[in-house]
């Protein structure tokens, strides 16, 4: 079972993703605090991280920077509620999937399946 980590300060989004992805038979973990999320991502053996861009203590960009060193193989899907320069900065660090809230669940599912499939076939 693939392990997915959700980092989002919005409780409703967190809960939604937890319920939805659990229903899709993923091993889902979630936290609302960016710093806690970073340590979880670094220490845990997650396959995918769904990370919000705008959080109080650190941005999605900070999460990416700090986690990538330790876990270069970790896949990222970023979400944001306000399009701004952060998304551009994230793009510069590599090609990442990006979703603008509110997004369609179906779209998220396709992305996740797309990202985790190759790993599964290996």
């Amino acid at each position: 079972m693939k392990k997915i980590l959700i980092i989002d300060d919005s409780a409703v989004m967190r809960n939604l993703l937890l319920d939805y992805l659990a229903d899709l038979k993923f091993d889902v973990d979630a936290c609302g605090d960016a710093e806690e999320g970073i340590s979880k991502a670094v220490t845990g053996d997650y396959d995918l991280c769904i990370c919000d861009m705008h959080m109080p203590k650190a941005s999605g960009l900070d999460v990416l920077r700090q986690v990538r060193e330790a876990r270069p193989e970790l896949q990222f899907v970023f979400t944001d509620s306000l399009p701004d320069q952060l998304s551009e900065k994230v793009q510069k660090l590599g090609t990442f999937q990006y979703l603008h809230k509110p997004f369609e669940l179906e779209q998220l599912r396709k992305i996740i399946v797309g990202l985790l499939k190759p790993v599964r076939t290996q």
Binding site: S10, V12, S81, L82, H100, F103, E104
Partner: peptide, 18 residues
């Protein structure tokens, strides 16, 4: 306003779809 609305809206839309 958009920023504040997008999270709850995401929840509403997502839960509805779910």
């Amino acid at each position: 306003v958009a920023h504040e609305l997008n999270n709850p809206l995401g929840g509403i839309l997502g839960y509805a779809q779910f």
